[in-house]
């Protein structure tokens, strides 16, 4: 479904990705694991069209999307849920969700999705008229995920959904991600720091270090790998 081939990205002269290749098949939940600065966010930004690659290609459903403007990529169903602090702070929860559905013309389908996310996150329903900037970190993260669901994703990319959240809230987010994957059958590319959960839930996983993919395997196999255990699982 998504195929990244030999992708290089640079910020000015500083290279951030050195020939990254990876793919996500339809129906998979693929985890991308790596420490800070490994290039995970850069990869997601490039797939979304916010950064232009200096080399390599990205294709989605056999169409080349590298070089396309970001709004066209979203229209094709490649949707990224950024971190929770990337919500629109002065807009209400409801307007944030409306912006999620910006590219969609089918009002009825949008209304159905709106109901779905309000069921998924009852807290958001309670706060629909509240400014997003006044919400807690966990609520903002829920909003960021809910907003991305309103874009009608075929491939959903989640950028560190549990970052900076209290353990209890983190559990909620984990459950929701699994629910979205199982009930909505959305293909997911998950970038996470919580390796234990992220490897457990994934069909496959990639490990990224210093702008390169250094390992790839089934989630459960990587969880047993000695290097992974030492570097990411804290054994």
């Amino acid at each position: 479904m998504l195929r990244v081939e030999n992708l290089t990205v640079a910020y000015g002269k500083a290279k951030a990705l050195y020939g990254v290749s990876m793919d996500v098949e339809e129906g998979e939940l693929v985890t991308l694991l790596g420490s800070n600065g490994a290039g995970k966010s850069t990869l997601l930004k490039t797939i979304s069209g916010l950064l232009k690659p200096t080399g390599g290609t990205i294709t989605f459903k056999d169409r080349k999307i590298s070089g396309m403007p970001s709004h066209k990529i979203v229209q094709m169903g490649v949707v990224q849920a950024p971190e929770g602090r990337e919500v629109f702070p002065s807009l209400s929860v409801h307007d944030n969700l409306r912006m999620g559905a910006f590219t969609r013309r089918d009002d009825k389908a949008v209304d159905r999705d709106m109901e779905f996310v309000f069921e998924l996150f009852p807290r958001l329903a309670e706060r629909r008229n509240q400014a997003a900037g006044t919400m807690s970190g966990g609520e903002a993260q829920m909003l960021a995920i809910a907003r991305s669901l309103l874009s009608g994703p075929k491939l959903l990319m989640l950028d560190e959904p549990s970052l900076g959240l209290a353990p209890v809230v983190r559990e909620d987010i984990f459950n929701v991600v699994q629910q979205i994957y199982q009930e909505r059958r959305v293909t997911i590319l998950l970038v996470e720091q919580n390796a234990k959960w992220a490897l457990g839930v994934a069909s496959r996983a990639y490990i990224m270090e210093n702008g390169r993919i250094v390992m790839q395997d089934q989630g459960s196999k990587l969880a047993e790998n000695e290097h992974v255990q030492r570097a990411y699982l804290g054994y």
Partner: peptide
């Protein structure tokens, strides 16, 4: 950036 991610 977030606006672009919404397809704006």
């Amino acid at each position: 950036n977030a606006a672009q991610l919404m397809g704006i």
